[in-house]
Measured scan of single mutants.
Amino acid sequence: MKVMIRKTATGHSAYVAKKDLEELIVEMENPALWGGKVTLANGWQLELPAMAADTPLPITVEARKL
């Protein structure tokens, strides 16, 4: 699914347009965010693609819901 990742004042957030859902990312498998699992505030887990740590945000990526 397409997910937009952006930086907020409190960390990172994910927006899933198909579900009209925006949630804070509360847990990251990798400190650089990319190439691992993230957990959203509502409990969803997404697998993000591997990208460079300095990838500019906001960005829309293809993520997989676990």
Score class of each variant (00 low, 15 high):
Ala52Ser: 12
Leu46Asn: 00
Asn42Gln: 00
Ala32Leu: 13
Val16Thr: 04
Leu46Pro: 01
Thr55Trp: 04
Glu29Phe: 05
Ala32Arg: 12
Ile5Ser: 01
Lys19Pro: 10
Pro49Phe: 07
Ala14Val: 15
Ala50Asn: 12
Arg64Ser: 08
Ala53Glu: 13
Met51Cys: 05
Trp44Met: 09
Thr55Gln: 07
Gln45Trp: 08
Ala17Glu: 14
Ala17Phe: 15
Asn30Lys: 11
Ala41Cys: 06
Lys2Arg: 13
Glu22Asn: 09
Ala50Val: 12
Tyr15Phe: 11
Val26Ser: 04
Leu66His: 07
Glu29Asp: 10
Glu29Pro: 01
Gly36Gln: 03
Ile59Ser: 02
Arg64His: 10
Leu24Ile: 13
Lys37Leu: 12
Trp34Thr: 03
Leu21Met: 13
Asn42Lys: 01
Thr55Arg: 04
Lys37Thr: 12
Val38Cys: 03
Trp44Gly: 00
Gln45Asn: 07
Met1Asn: 04
Ala63His: 03
Lys65Ala: 12
Leu33Ala: 03
Lys65Gln: 13
Pro31Leu: 09
Ile25Trp: 02
Glu47Ile: 14
Gly43Cys: 06
Leu46Ile: 11
Ile25Gly: 00
Leu57Thr: 05
Ala53Gln: 10
Val61Ala: 02
Met51Glu: 03
Thr39Asp: 00
Thr60Lys: 04
Met1Pro: 02
Thr60Tyr: 11
Val38Asn: 02
Ala14Phe: 09
Ala32Ser: 14
Lys2Leu: 14
Lys2Val: 14
Pro56Thr: 11
Leu46Phe: 13
Ile25Asp: 01
Gln45Ser: 09
Glu62Pro: 08
Leu40Arg: 00
Leu46Glu: 00
Trp44Val: 06
Thr60Gly: 04
Gly43Tyr: 04
Ala41Tyr: 06
Val61Ser: 03
Leu66Ile: 14
Ala52Lys: 10
Glu62Met: 15
Pro56Trp: 07
Val26Glu: 06
Ala52Leu: 08
Met51Asn: 05
Leu48Met: 09
His12Cys: 07
Val38Trp: 04
Ala9Lys: 12
Leu24Trp: 08
Ala32Tyr: 14
Asp54Glu: 10
Lys7Ile: 08
Ala52His: 10
Thr60Leu: 11
Leu21Ser: 08
Glu27Gln: 12
Thr39Pro: 00
Thr8Trp: 06
Lys37Asn: 08
Trp34Gln: 01
Glu47Leu: 14
Tyr15Trp: 11
Lys7Val: 08
Ala17Trp: 15
Lys7Ser: 08
Thr60Met: 11
Leu40Glu: 00
Asn42Arg: 00
Thr60Ser: 09
Gln45Gly: 03
His12Gly: 01
Asn42Glu: 02
Leu33Arg: 03
Arg6Cys: 11
Val26Ile: 13
Ala63Glu: 03
Tyr15Leu: 10
Ile5His: 00
Ile25Pro: 01
Glu62Arg: 12
His12Lys: 04
Leu57Cys: 04
Tyr15Gln: 08
Gln45Thr: 13
Glu22Lys: 05
Ile59Leu: 09
Lys2Gln: 14
Lys37Ser: 10
Pro49Leu: 05
Lys37Val: 14
Arg6Tyr: 10
Gln45Met: 13
Met28Ser: 13
Leu24His: 11
Asn30Glu: 07
Lys65Ser: 12
Ala50Ser: 11
Glu47His: 10
Leu33Asp: 03
Met4Gln: 14
Lys19Met: 15
Lys2Thr: 14
Ile59Met: 10
Thr10Tyr: 13
Asn42Ser: 08
Val3Gly: 00
Ala63Thr: 08
Glu27Leu: 09
Leu33Ile: 09
Leu33Pro: 03
Ile5Trp: 02
Glu62Ile: 15
Ala50Lys: 11
Ser13Thr: 13
Thr55Asn: 03
Glu23Asn: 07
Met28Asn: 07
Ala41Ser: 11
Thr39Glu: 05
Leu48Gly: 01
Leu57Glu: 02
Leu46His: 03
Ala9Asn: 10
Lys18Asn: 14
Pro58Leu: 06
Ala17Thr: 11
Leu40Cys: 04
Glu29Gln: 09
Trp44Pro: 01
Trp44Arg: 00
Leu57Asn: 02
Tyr15Val: 09
Val3Leu: 07
Ile59Val: 13
Ser13Met: 13
Ala32Gly: 14
Gly43Phe: 05
Ala9Pro: 13
Leu33Met: 14
Trp44Ser: 00
Pro56Leu: 10
Leu48Trp: 02
Leu21Ala: 09
Thr8Val: 11
Lys65Tyr: 15
Met51Val: 05
Ala52Gly: 09
Leu48His: 01
Leu40His: 01
Ile5Asp: 00
Thr60Gln: 08
Gly35Leu: 04
His12Thr: 07
Gln45Ala: 08
Lys37Glu: 05
Pro49Gln: 03
Glu23Ile: 15
Glu62Cys: 15
Ser13Glu: 07
Arg64Asp: 04
Ala50Cys: 11
Thr60Phe: 11
Asp20Thr: 07
Thr39Gly: 02
Gln45Lys: 11
Ser13Cys: 14
Ala50Met: 14
Ile25Lys: 00
Lys18Met: 14
Gly43Asn: 03
Trp44Leu: 07
Thr60Val: 12
Lys7Gly: 06
Gly35Asp: 06
Arg64Ile: 14
Val38Pro: 00
Pro31Arg: 08
Glu27Ser: 13
Leu24Met: 13
Leu24Asp: 14
Leu48Tyr: 02
Gly36Ser: 05
Thr8Leu: 09
Ala17Asn: 08
Trp44Tyr: 04
Thr10Arg: 13
Leu66Ser: 08
Met4Asn: 08
Trp44Asn: 02
Leu57Gln: 02
Glu22Gln: 08
Asn42Met: 04
Thr60Glu: 14
His12Asn: 05
Glu22Phe: 10
Glu27Ile: 09
Pro58His: 03
Pro58Gly: 03
Glu62Trp: 15
Glu22Leu: 12
Asp54Ile: 06
Gly11Arg: 03
Pro58Tyr: 06
Tyr15Thr: 11
Leu21His: 09
Pro56His: 08
Ile25Gln: 00
Glu47Val: 14
Ala50Trp: 15
Lys65Asp: 12
Asp20Gln: 12
Gly11Pro: 00
Arg6Thr: 10
Leu24Glu: 14
Gly36Ala: 06
Pro56Val: 12
Leu33Phe: 07
Thr39Tyr: 08
Lys2Ala: 12
Leu57Trp: 07
Thr39Leu: 10
Leu48Asn: 00
Val3Ala: 01
Thr55Ala: 06
Glu62Ala: 10
Glu27Asn: 10
Lys18Ile: 15
Glu29Cys: 06
Met51Thr: 01
Arg64Cys: 10
Val3Met: 03
Val38Gly: 00
Asp20Ser: 10
Glu29His: 04
Leu57Gly: 02
Pro31Ala: 11
Leu46Met: 08
Glu22Cys: 13
Ala50Asp: 12
Ser13Ile: 13
Thr10Lys: 13
Leu66Gly: 04
Asp20Tyr: 10
Ala32Cys: 11
Pro31Thr: 09
Met4Tyr: 08
Ala9Tyr: 08
Thr55His: 04
Val3Asn: 01
Ala53Ser: 11
Trp44Ile: 07
Thr8Gly: 07
Val38Glu: 02
Pro58Ala: 02
Val61Phe: 06
Pro56Gly: 07
Ala14Asp: 00
Asn30Thr: 09
Lys65Met: 15
Lys7Ala: 10
Leu57Phe: 13
Leu33His: 02
Met51Tyr: 06
Ala50His: 13
Val16Phe: 15
Leu21Asp: 05
His12Ile: 13
Ala53Cys: 08
